[in-house]
Simulated assay, not measured.
Amino acid sequence: MEHASKLQHRNPVKTSSGWLNGLIGVVIFSGSLPATRIAVQEIGPVFLTVARASIAGAVALCIVLLLRERRPAPHHVLPLCIVALGVVLGFPLLTAMALQYVTSAHSIVFVGLLPLATAVFAVLRGGERPKPAFWLFSVLGSALVVGFAVSQGLSDGLMASPVGDCLMLLAILACGLGYAEGAKVSRTLGGWQVICWALVISLPVMLVLTAFTAPPTLAHLSWPAWLSLAYVSLFSMLIGFVFWYRGLVQGGIAAVGQLQLLQPFFGLALAATLLHEQVSPGMIGVTLAVIACVAAARRFSS
């Protein structure tokens, strides 16, 4: 039985599908920090967090009701609460608070640590055991992303904030735990079901907090703020996780988690396409090196 399970886990078709789903999830997540940065300039971080969770939770509730999805078993409740604390409340709130002190560009430094955090929790919570070479390429890839982000910040004259840095570090730990825990329970509950039920479980609390933290009026919000709120509510909080958790289950938490190393560069590509910002040769070189690290980490992930 165990041997058959390993063969199934290593099924090339299933693994490739996992990497594709994971890649789609990362592309969706790449717009989260810039959108949060835009929204938090006009919306308080606490209200932004609970409002986006309430919107996503309401949509998730409609989905499970329309599809008549069976309720989670009792042993799923605690893992779903951990997922909710990690990715529904923890990461959005901590990043929204951090982005009051640091720029979205500076936050890339910490995004580069997210694959490592996910891999560590994959071992602690998911029972995965990557080979030693995996950790070598994972650390190398993270170092490349962090080094690139730091060099960009220094060249742009960006100043670090100890408060913002601490909040971002806590956000990364919360997110890594939420990713690994969600992927673990997705093995038996299903990927889209996990994020939907985590949102539904947190919905009553989020609705109450939304009512208490809502400003007197939202008439002053600009269209970019409204669009950013819509993006982080529907795509960052719900749609992206449908692909992401499916990918983590199919391809392995630690392995597919390395795709997060590419997230900052998808953001740069987006900026170059939509904002016509210049992409330097160094940017391309680092991106290629990170892709090589991701490919190597995938090879030694199990």
Rank of each mutant, 00 (worst) to 15 (best):
M1K: 06
M1E: 09
A4S: 11
Q8N: 14
R10F: 04
R10V: 03
V13R: 14
S16H: 11
N21M: 14
G22H: 07
G25H: 10
V26Q: 05
F29N: 09
S32P: 01
L33D: 09
A35I: 11
L48Y: 05
A51R: 00
R52Y: 09
R52Q: 09
A56S: 12
V59L: 08
C62Q: 02
L66E: 03
R68F: 05
R70D: 06
P74E: 10
P79A: 11
L80A: 12
C81E: 07
G90K: 03
L94R: 01
A96Y: 11
A98N: 11
T103P: 02
L116V: 15
A117Q: 01
T118L: 04
E128A: 11
L136K: 03
F137E: 07
F137D: 08
L140A: 15
S142P: 04
S142N: 04
L144Q: 02
G147W: 00
L154I: 12
L158P: 00
M159A: 15
A160Y: 10
S161T: 12
G164C: 04
D165M: 07
C166V: 15
M168I: 08
L169E: 00
L170R: 04
L173A: 14
G176S: 11
E181N: 07
K184R: 15
S186P: 01
R187H: 11
T188P: 00
T188D: 12
Q193W: 06
I195Q: 01
L199E: 12
P204E: 09
V205E: 01
M206K: 06
L209K: 02
A214W: 05
A219H: 13
A219D: 13
L221A: 02
A225K: 03
W226E: 11
L229M: 14
L229R: 00
A230S: 13
A230D: 13
S233F: 03
M237R: 01
M237N: 10
F241K: 03
V242A: 05
V242W: 11
Y245Q: 10
L248C: 08
V249N: 03
G257W: 08
Q258S: 10
L259P: 01
L261P: 00
Q263C: 13
F265L: 04
L270V: 13
L270Q: 09
A272H: 04
A272K: 12
S280C: 00
M283Y: 00
V286C: 01
A289P: 01
I291S: 05
V294R: 05
V294T: 10
A297Q: 04
R299I: 15
F300R: 09
